[in-house]
Design a protein around this nucleic acid. Structure first.
Lengths: 125, 125
DNA sequence: CGGGATCCTAGGGGATACTG
DNA sequence: CAGTATCCCCTAGGATCCCG
């Protein structure tokens, strides 16, 4: 449509950025997108290399944002499961194109992680 | 779903994350997506609040990544124009769903930025 | 005008140890 | 098992000044 009224402003982008710019947030979203439910240590294992603190922090943020849900079972030992909410699933879908494009584009660099894939992301630097 | 193969691996995500997690990177991509070309101070104006250093740094990164091109004109005073490369344009398109979804989702929160919204970036290309 | 050079700070995020 | 509680470090990014 004409002119400038079809998209209001870019402020909303800032909102997402606060979320997705957290180093592990997208990874968590993505991992939870593939497994229906995961426990704390399950996540920690998938996201190889993340520290418990960071995982806890990021999960807390994602819960606050409404992307991730949490269910705790009163058992011993404790069991807690995390999963994507509807919103989280929508976010995940919203970033899939990005992931897809990236896959295509980085399949050269991709060699670099040949052996370690799946076994997700050792963020070594 | 037990499988490990339904989704290849999330390593590529790390790549993008490095880029999109830069606080202003996506904004720049998006702004450049809407204006065909912009000068340094033009960008600075659109991205109200960014410091010259950060803008320069981020532009340098985006150029290194191949998302943004730069053309300098040997004039006085100097004129430099930035624009999206093909890759940059693809990236921009890859994040459009994210933007769209965000727009829809945050139109509540959107009130929060009532006053400070900048010039509406119309998506025409 | 477009940035480079400096300095400085908040806080994100790693490591480790501890607890309910 | 699922987190807290600490400590510590590092870098992104703001502010400022200056120069070609």
């Amino acid at each position: 449509m004409a002119g400038e009224s079809d998209v209001p402003c870019i402020c909303p982008l800032e909102g997402v950025i606060d979320t997705i710019s957290k180093k592990w947030a997208l990874l968590i979203i993505h991992v939870l997108g593939n497994h229906s439910r995961l426990r704390f240590n399950g996540l920690a294992k998938e996201l190889e290399g993340i520290s418990p603190k960071t995982l806890a922090d990021t999960l807390a943020l994602l819960r606050k944002e409404g992307f991730v849900g949490r269910e705790a079972f009163p058992e011993i030992p404790p069991r807690v499961e995390y999963y994507l909410t509807e919103d989280g699933r929508e976010l995940w879908e919203a970033i899939l194109p990005l992931l897809t494009w990236t896959l295509k584009r980085e399949h050269l660099t991709h060699e670099a992680c040949k052996g370690r894939c799946r076994k997700p992301a050792g963020h070594r630097r």
